[in-house]
Design a protein around this nucleic acid. Structure first.
Length: 828
DNA sequence: TCCTGAAAGCTTTTT
DNA sequence: GCTTTCAGGA
């Protein structure tokens, strides 16, 4: 038996060892799917002798990709020891990346192979909308009647359905307009030598579909394909997979892992029905269900099940766990979002005080980014360290975008969107009028704006000579600028020219050098650092960007010859997401949206804003589309990812767009059986609009043994409730608790579990067998390893997939990182 | 051309 | 409530 599959349960083992595909794995939450994927890769390489360069694993975030690669390396190193001398890694040539990054690589290579400069750049969402807006202005379309954002979304959706401007057919007047914009937008992208996210997929699919050579080349390159989060694939991505796999008759090796219930990206074209398509397209596939959960307590799992079982069109799964019953999920109604945040912060403080948890154990999740503000304020006030994921994304900050725009224009002078962004930033006397004139003049000559600048700077003869092209006669006429404007333009053109030359000749060590030069000579930094705190903040962000840029050096382009360091830098920066920056440092509470929370797990999870209009979101309520509502439910389901404690919090009132309105508790709360919850609110009474402020817990409650007197709070519908009376820290008092035997046998349940001061007991009472439970090893433990001998634990941490990674110092051997499930470590 | 203050519009979710 | 856009004056 392979050591790689030791300690896996039967379905997991089957998923790893079934090397003949196609394989469809439907994996419930917390069922160890990352583990299965990483071990399968390790198994293919070491046990099956498959070359790593014949394997491609596709994920949806760069972070997941990076982690997967690290974990595979770790497994291989642990089981088989250090790689043979001269071979730095067993994983050489292994492709792990997102759909988008893999497509970008393919397109770069193919562009270069076709003899073109692969220096196109990738536009982010803001650039894309800006370009749509510019195009619509040219077409004289009313932005009020046709919001550029909506038009852009429509175009993006069509692209994800593989509809090109040529095959586009508009069914309504709006769509007819959108079609015109689409065509024009696509032309503009081409003129700017740019692609949007959707182009990366679309063009790769078209390449593979229409170009037999390219198709067979990549089919031969990657006979082994693995896909994570398969339910989040859109039509283009599914088609790309199909093309890479080839005819089903080839019986090529396709392995996909997904969970229809966790499909939450419908808005960007993801279609969980691809699971059904897969079944149909690969009738000989093997289907494996992973139903054992290693993450959560049974109660939390029951909550999740109760939520998701209301959805139709799903593959029923029976999720179960050995982790024990655990405490009920807690429902709390706060008066408003300020009190909601205060409640969350209070609870976290109390749990921190028990020492049973650290700040990094907590996640506070919400539907929309806007909800983070109140939480942040509460945390700042209480000096609780937190990290906020995603609100103002780093790469969307103005100063960062400006700096990148400079670099983009240097890399790709055709990029007029970036040029227009920086041409007068800092102000250098090139205002709207001058810009307009430049645009028109460039149009007239039939060149890009950067080239027009060069004509202005060097004269048409020299530009024509250098580019080897004939310029139109318009280029030789006097330029239409006033003296002042023309001087400003020429001065800027000279700067740009110098930078472009520096880059072309490779006269910079790292991208950071280039960035320094640009920011200094453009005067950008001087203008930014105006002495204000804000200026310093922004400058600090640029320094952070510089830190990233410093990693892109001349040396690295040897690996990817078709790209300059600058090109590599710009590409990677375009394709990272904010969650990729999520570090695992345990020092802070994490604030993040439900979407970004997917794939992560925390001992304690709060879902705030469990209200109609927030979760489910008003857009989904108003659309009346059952699929929209189903997705909101899946999103809630995805959010239920606590290992031990789950809080569902909602508000009585909430301020939205300035004014405050009454909120109804989320319908999803109604779907959870009351015996899984504590702190049940009498929602009937709530609907009648009454709200009772409770500042201290009454005698009635203290009799039940619950203590929370030190913290005032809001509570409603409790004392005169028609439903089972409930306290926030215990089970519903008149609910029979016989349902869960562990409630009685373990202090890790019921009131003691939740009350402050009982944390010590809780930690010791936990079952050591629980896979995702407490860690089996701690600092200073003496341990024995079969080959390394006796050592001392330096550090131990839970890995993302329910395993535990222990760092051990072995005297005379060195420091080793070991996975508990594999290493055969014994505690002495 | 650039700065200021007022007004409008805005918020799902992300590669 | 907050950010982006617009209008008007220097």
């Amino acid at each position: 038996m392979s050591k790689i599959t030791a300690n896996l349960n039967e379905p997991q083992k089957k998923a790893v060892e079934t090397v003949k595909g196609p394989v469809l794995v439907l994996a419930g939450p917390g069922s160890g799917k990352t583990r299965v994927l990483t071990r399968r890769i390790a198994y293919m390489i070491e046990e099956q002798g498959i070359a790593p360069w014949n394997i491609a694993a596709v994920t949806f975030t760069n972070k997941a990709a990076g982690e997967m690669r690290e974990r595979v390396a770790l497994i291989l190193q642990e089981i088989y020891g250090a790689p043979p001398v001269g071979q730095s890694s067993r994983l050489g040539g292994l492709t792990i990346g997102t759909f988008h990054s893999i497509c970008a690589r393919i397109l770069r290579v193919e562009t270069a192979a076709a003899g073109f400069q692969p220096n196109w750049i990738i536009y982010d969402s803001a650039d894309q909308v800006a370009l749509v807006r510019a195009v619509m202005r040219d077409l004289n379309l009313d932005e009020k009647r046709y919001p550029p954002k909506a038009i852009h979304a429509h175009i993006s959706n069509r692209k994800n359905e593989l509809i090109t401007p040529e095959t586009y057919r508009g069914a309504s007047y709006f769509e007819e307009i959108a079609g015109r914009v689409y065509r024009s937008y696509q032309e503009s992208l081409l003129a700017n030598n740019a692609m949007d996210f959707d182009d990366l997929l679309l063009r790769t699919v078209l390449l593979l579909r229409d170009n037999l050579d390219a198709r067979s080349k990549y089919q031969r390159k990657w006979p082994y394909l693995l896909v994570d989060e398969f339910q989040d694939t859109n039509s283009a991505q599914y088609e790309m997979l199909r093309l890479l796999v080839g005819e089903p008759a080839h019986n090529r090796n396709l392995f996909v892992v997904g969970d229809e219930d966790q499909s939450i990206y419908r808005f960007r074209g993801a279609d969980y029905r691809n699971v059904q398509l897969f079944r149909k397209d690969y009738p000989d596939h093997i289907e494996i269900l992973l139903e054992q959960n290693y993450r959560s307590t049974q109660t939390i799992l029951d909550v999740a099940n109760a939520l998701i079982s209301q959805n139709r069109n799903r593959t029923p799964k029976r999720l179960h766990t050995d982790n024990g019953q655990g405490a009920p999920a807690m429902v709390y109604e706060a008066y408003n979002e300020v009190e909601e945040a205060a409640f969350v912060a209070d609870e976290i403080e109390k749990m921190l005080a028990t020492k049973a948890f650290q700040a990094g154990d907590f996640a506070v999740t919400y539907r929309t980014n806007a909800q983070s503000r109140a939480l942040e304020e509460a945390f700042v006030m209480r000096h609780i360290k937190y990290k906020l994921i995603g609100a103002t994304r780093f790469y969307e900050r103005k100063e960062v975008k400006d700096a990148l725009a400079y670099l983009r224009v240097i890399h790709n002078p055709a990029d007029s969107v970036s040029l227009e962004r920086i041409i007068n930033s800092p102000p250098r006397g090139i205002g709207a009028k001058t810009l307009e004139a430049l645009r028109n003049w460039a149009n007239e000559i039939g060149v890009g704006q950067t080239e027009a600048l060069q004509i202005l700077h060097h004269g048409p003869q020299r530009v024509a000579l250098q580019s080897g092209r004939t310029l139109s006669t318009a280029a030789y006429k006097a330029p239409p600028f006033g003296a002042r404007a023309q001087n400003a333009l020429i001065e800027f053109a000279a700067l740009l020219d110098e930078w472009i030359a520096t880059e072309r000749r490779g006269h910079y060590d790292s991208v950071a050098d280039l960035l320094d030069q640009v920011l200094a000579k453009s005067g950008y930094v001087d203008t930014l650092r105006d002495g204000s705190d804000e200026g310093e903040d922004r400058f600090a962000n640029l320094q952070e960007l510089r830190g990233v840029a410093a990693q892109y050096t001349q040396g690295m382009s040897a690996l990817e010859p078709e790209q300059s360091p600058l090109g590599l830098f710009l590409e990677e920066v375009s394709l990272v997401s904010d969650s990729d920056q999520l570090d695992d440092s345990a020092g802070a509470v994490t604030l993040l949206t439900l979407h970004t929370a997917k794939g992560l797990e925390y001992p304690v999870v709060f879902i705030v804003g469990m209200e109609e209009g927030i979760l489910p979101h008003s857009r989904s309520l108003e659309s009346g589309d059952a699929e929209d509502m189903a997705e909101e439910r899946r999103l809630t389901y995805v959010g239920v990812r606590a290992k031990k404690r789950l809080y569902l919090v909602h508000c009585f009132r909430r301020s939205l767009w300035g004014d405050s309105s009454m909120q109804q508790p989320s319908r999803f709360l109604d779907d959870i059986p009351p015996d899984l919850l504590s702190g049940m609110v009498d929602r009937q009474r709530r609907r009648e609009g009454s709200y009772q402020r409770v500042t201290s817990w009454d005698a009635d409650e203290s009799e039940r043994g619950q203590s929370r007197s030190q913290t005032g709070g809001y509570w409603s519908g409790r004392s005169k409730s028609t439903q089972p009376a409930a306290s926030p820290f215990g089970q519903p008092s008149n609910q029979p608790s016989s349902k869960s035997p562990s409630d009685h046998s373990s202090p890790a349940a019921g009131s003691a579990y939740w009350s402050p001061g009982a944390g010590g007991k809780e930690a010791s009472a936990r079952k050591p067998a629980a896979a995702s439970g407490p860690l089996a090893f701690k600092r200073r433990d003496s341990v024995q390893h079969p080959s390394f001998g006796i050592g001392t634990v330096i550090e131990s941490e839970a890995t993302g997939d329910g395993d535990e990674q222990v760092t051990v110092a072995f005297p005379g051997v060195g420091i080793k990182k070991l996975l508990v499930s594999l290493a055969g470590l014994k505690k002495l």
